[in-house]
Design a protein around this nucleic acid. Structure first.
Lengths: 100, 100
DNA sequence: TTGATAGGCAAGTCGTCACTTGCCTATGGT
DNA sequence: ACCATAGGCAAGTGACGACTTGCCTATCAA
């Protein structure tokens, strides 16, 4: 599970896809292709994006729902929690000190 | 910066190294090699581990300090914060609801 | 039914990455 | 001075991953 999560995050295009889904949830494959092309100047084929979405879905970061011939993609950030669960990040508001 | 962070996290051996540094901070290269070999049955060469540490250091996840002929490695989880800053993770204690 | 739209499957190419091997530098003990 | 220990540098290899190309299926509108 962790393996797929980190593999999914390793690619910059996939991270951009997550950004776009965070900006607007429930996009179709073609909408995502358009955003990557227009906003980020990424000239990827439709299949490339589709493969990226499959990787993100297998990591649990993207969930899909079918309606007719459309397939909508939603962001799910819950899997990211296991990262900070595994390596706790100190609170920046309390710079550094041992737990009193 | 983000690129190096996620690349660093992408490899399972590097994640195990982070685990070991979280368990015991300030280890030398040889100590880490020993732990990977004994606790995780990872038969890596010393150079392989050294290269992994270099990747982790360039991501800011590991910091080093030299003392004599020893080089100690310390974990720094602060860079992980940019992950949850970029894609906010919902609080699991309040399952789901719009901010009231 | 035909055509257009939205998406899926599979093989092939090319580059990147993890790891090894071999040799070199530096510090410390005796 | 020696030798062992701790670490670094660089080239070579093998495998995996990103992307393309080509073809196929399914839904909806005319």
């Amino acid at each position: 599970m962790a393996e797929e999560l980190f593999k999914a995050l390793a690619d910059p295009t996939r991270r951009t896809i997550l950004d776009e889904l965070a900006d607007r949830s429930g996009q179709t494959l073609f909408e995502i292709c358009g955003r990557l092309s227009m906003k980020h100047r990424l000239g990827l084929s439709r299949q490339a994006v589709s493969q990226h979405l499959a990787v993100l879905e297998s990591a649990g970061l993207v969930e899909t729902r079918r309606e007719g011939r459309y397939k909508y993609h939603d962001l799910n950030t819950a899997p990211l929690r296991q990262i900070t669960d595994r390596w706790p990040v100190p609170d920046p508001s309390r710079p550094e000190e041992s737990t009193p």
